[in-house]
Design a protein around this nucleic acid. Structure first.
Lengths: 338, 338
DNA sequence: ACTCGCTAGGAAAGGGCTTTCTTCAGGTAA
DNA sequence: TTACCTGAAGAAAGCCCTTTCCTAGCGAGT
């Protein structure tokens, strides 16, 4: 691999001059030498060693992002927003998939620190796990003390800049819509119990229930994995245990699709025999049959705000921004058949 | 940010000893000193600077991957395969999204080289663009001469290890299925003209046509962007220009979903009034209505093979592996209504 | 008692780059 | 002519770590 020294030697100049030419430094260099250096770069196919540059330079250029899984449309959209703002700031994004494994999440914080990132954005849900929370916060605080910036999306115990998706509010909107339509027995296909996203959305649903003089007993809630297949299985269990259901709320759209699949396989018509409501309004929601009524959160916006907090000027106090949820009515919900 | 020197100082040892303890070197260190170092690491929340390590160590640990867009399910699946094998080899994957921009693709090759990756895997389609091809190959060859490994997925001009998805074969299978069902006038929603993926799949479709004594005139082909929305628009144009169509082949599933959306909005029943066939068998294909007949390529396998080529022992001659395509029959295709 | 051989630890040399500090040559002013 | 300044290039220090090469100290063997 050609080095700067090779280039300098070939051009008959010092490494300092070669570096100045290559980086377009403000220091003036005669055209003659500049040409010689450029030619040497071409001929040797020279590419500077990024690690050596990072070591030598003072400023940190990359930012780190930890998501559960970028190939999940929910995180893909958030990531789009994150990247967009990062690019505007001339930063490179390093994206890490935790696959919902708290230990991996901890490991990635270290890895990002090791990579000398200027900021870390945590986009996954928080976990209901005191040990993990303590460890994570210790790491983040140490990082911040060393000059790193941190922003989180969603409810974490971390005391710092945060953008909060309206999970509770969205849950409420979904529940209120179903109760308003006249449903009384609503089943819920929830995500993993340990995630704050799950508990927050569920809490919103329950608040709506209370407001309409109803309740959602534990029996009517199944916990799945925020993915289609586990939701399909969960739906079967839910239906078997609760024969009288007239509506099902899935806590994300991927699971709503699993719900629809199970209903179809049982010849239960949507929305005539069963209303279904999703959460997140991912792109595919409008293309399933029937198109999915769901809750929109504006995920790219979520990402953009978080990155803006992380890269903008630091504030004395922690800033918490709230992103409102919004009901998107489509064809998968209707009043219960009487 | 704490450095190794800080740790050493705090532990009252030399940097050499601290390094040995931290990296679990084979050199023996007394328990006394080991403890002191470990304690200092804890107290300072020390994380080694990855760039300095990379500079100091000889071996390259990361591998680079260039895809069009990881959030596209097609590439997400391939990436899963790539990651899996990379992890087995103890390598870290750096993933870059080219967003189908050739220039960005070139820039990323340099970036990956700068990051000192041990191998580069190109997963995007090739481009019909001589200038780009020449530049890319020059870069790749230079990288290989400097000891880097390269593997590509799909048809590129690059002379090296490659895994070929059965694009032409898949196109043929799709076409043959439609003609066998009795369709005569088949429309095609293709991807961007400049991609070899598009031309290969289209070529397969045309081969099937010839074999059944038919043809696919240019008028029956619209070019979209491999995404839902552009395909939906394209489908409208296709239908308007060709009133007698009885079947539409979309060159990937995302576009097939766009086709279905347009047909639904025009009240054209699938498969009764129009058969639709997709390509790739992405997960959602089974959940749309009607479930999509499509071509499966085994994307994770594609990724696994490519990474295995890149990380395995180098071969004297370029290896080219072919991955067969397979027809998946579902409910979106049927004989034409007579 | 003296040398040899071993071990645990430290000193120092890179690894590739940026950047400050120096040097040197050439030009200007007195 | 001399002194001074400016502009362009090079020398060298420093970024943080790993690893080779030394050194000091100890126990063992004669």
């Amino acid at each position: 691999m050609a080095t700067l020294a090779d280039v300098a030697r070939r051009a008959g100049v010092s490494a300092a001059t070669a570096s100045r030419v290559i980086n377009g430094s403000t220091k003036p260099v005669t055209d003659e030498l500049r040409d010689r250096v450029m030619r040497a770069v071409e001929e040797l196919h020279y590419v500077p060693n990024a690690h050596a540059q990072l070591l030598a330079r003072a400023d940190r250029i990359a930012v780190g992002v930890i998501v559960h899984d970028v190939s999940d449309p929910y995180f893909a959209e958030i990531t789009r927003g994150l990247q967009r703002v990062a690019t505007e700031h001339g930063r490179l994004c390093i994206i890490c998939n935790s696959y919902r494994d708290p230990d991996r999440e901890l490991a990635y914080v270290d890895l990002l620190r090791a990579q000398q990132v200027a900021a870390i954005v945590l986009t996954g849900s928080g976990y209901h796990d005191p040990r993990f929370t303590r460890l994570l916060n210790a790491k983040l605080r140490a990082y911040e003390r060393a000059g790193g910036r941190v922003a989180v999306i969603g409810r974490h115990k971390h005391a710092g800049d945060a953008v909060m998706p309206g999970n509770e509010e969205g849950g409420y909107l979904a529940g209120a819509e179903l109760y308003r339509l006249g449903h009384q027995r609503i089943g819920v296909v929830a995500g993993p119990k340990v995630l704050t996203t799950t508990t927050d959305r569920l809490a919103g649903l329950r608040r709506a229930a209370r407001e309409f003089g109803q309740a959602i007993p534990p029996k009517r809630v199944v916990y799945a994995n925020f993915d289609r297949d586990s939701a399909a299985v969960g739906t079967s269990a839910l239906l078997d245990a609760n024969p009288g259901l007239t509506a099902i709320a899935a806590l994300n759209d991927a699971m709503a699709i699993g719900v629809l699949a199970t209903l179809r396989s049982r010849d239960i018509a949507v929305p005539h025999d069963m209303s279904v409501i999703g959460f997140d309004d991912m792109p595919i929601a409008q293309d399933v049959v029937p198109p999915l009524t769901t809750i929109r959160l504006g995920m790219p916006e979520l990402g953009m705000r978080a990155m803006a907090l992380a890269l903008g000027p630091p504030a004395a106090d922690a800033r918490v921004e709230l992103l409102p949820a919004e009901l998107v009515r489509r064809a998968s919900t209707a009043p219960p058949a009487s």
